[in-house]
């Protein structure tokens, strides 16, 4: 600007150029303002399969807020299927969500977790005009026959391979391991994935599925004889008692135990878990790209690739197992 002022008196052409420059800047500013107004005016709808206050949901929401960065007004609809697992309830909520979409006419919908895709997107919005970004879908999207022309998003995978790298570093000559989990369908599916990947590394993984705490405790004690214990979820063991299991683990843990669920950390030595914020943030960034003109079909479906790591120093210490200092330093410590 100072250059313009100093040279202006010497040339009319420069004055004109300066004027033109100023005009272009003004136009750019106005364009910017109108563009930002347009973005602000855009409406995004977040459809959650769960409810507000549920930790996973809240993490996703946090990621969405960060990713949207106020470029879009966000409206939220909760299907609340975690507290109401009944299928009919889910269908009813999906219909309500559909009605809400038709009334509010959002520019883009962010549908999180499986029930939103299963009960809302697949039956009502497959290949529709409305762009939909999904996130938090477990492992595969084949159940919903994704991709549609109007969808893209992020699939949620359990970090089996990264965790295996840690395991191999900690247990140098690992040959076998026990996969201990409730006797539920999801856990059987997860076990098969584990088994396949571990087999690639010549590690034999045995699946133990229980329904009661006593059975779990017995199996846990038996598994201490193997090289590794992989702990699945505890949802499905109805008489689970956190304190009791914590005490039990502290008393008996000698084998390196790992999990992909952070809430299993009181009884596990090391965990590598998914980050809900990553899902939300990605979904929001994609939503903005769509609002800026990208077609959902042109954006590949990706998987999550950020993990949280947890370590339970008490259990590690009592079992006399040492993690690399780098790993331990980066891990969130759990326990006393």
């Amino acid at each position: 600007m100072s250059r313009l002022i100093s040279l202006a008196p010497f040339s009319y052409r420069q004055k004109f150029a300066a004027g033109l420059q100023a005009a272009l800047i003004l136009i750019a500013l106005l364009y910017g303002i109108s563009f930002s107004n347009l973005a602000v005016a855009a409406k995004c709808l977040y459809v959650s399969s769960y409810h507000s206050g549920y930790e996973w949901n809240d993490g996703i929401e946090k990621g969405i807020d960060k990713g949207l960065d106020n470029q879009c007004t966000i409206d939220k609809f909760y299907m609340d299927t975690k507290r109401n697992p009944d299928v009919e309830f889910a269908k009813k909520m999906a219909l309500a969500a559909k009605k809400h979409i038709e009334e509010t006419k959002p520019d883009v919908v962010i549908a999180c977790d499986d029930n939103a895709s299963r009960y809302l997107v697949m039956p009502y919005f497959k290949d529709a005009d409305l762009p939909i970004v999904f996130c938090g879908l477990n492992w595969t999207v084949s159940e919903y026959k994704y991709p549609y022309t109007n969808t893209t998003g992020m699939v949620e995978v359990v970090p089996i391979r990264p965790l295996l790298d840690v395991v191999k570093n900690v247990v140098k000559s690992i040959k076998n391991g026990v996969y201990l989990s409730p006797d539920v369908h999801t856990e059987h599916k997860d076990f098969l994935r584990y088994k396949k990947i571990y087999a690639e590394h010549n590690i034999s993984l045995e699946g133990v599925f229980v329904s009661k705490l006593a059975d779990w405790k017995k199996a846990y004690l038996d598994a201490q004889k193997s090289d590794l214990i992989v702990l699945g979820n505890n949802a499905g063991i109805n008489d689970w008692n956190i304190e009791e299991v914590t005490r039990y683990a502290e008393q008996h843990a000698t084998t390196f135990s790992v999990t992909n669920y952070d809430w299993m950390m009181p009884y596990t030595m090391f965990a590598m878990t998914k980050i809900p914020e990553e899902q939300g943030e990605w979904a929001a960034e994609i939503a903005i790209s769509i609002l800026n003109g990208q077609r959902p079909a042109d954006i590949p479906i990706v998987v999550n690739r950020k993990w949280n790591i947890f370590a339970n120093p008490n259990l590690l210490k009592s079992a006399n197992i040492k993690l690399s200092p780098h790993l331990l330093q980066n891990a969130t410590k759990v326990g006393n």
């Binding site: 492992w139 595969t140 999207v141 084949s142 994704y146 991709p147 893209t152 699939v155 949620e156 995978v157 590949p300 479906i301 990706v302 998987v303 999550n304």
Partner: peptide, 9 residues
Amino acid sequence: MHENGYVTF
């Protein structure tokens, strides 16, 4: 890649 979640890969 599909199995690992990159279903459109």
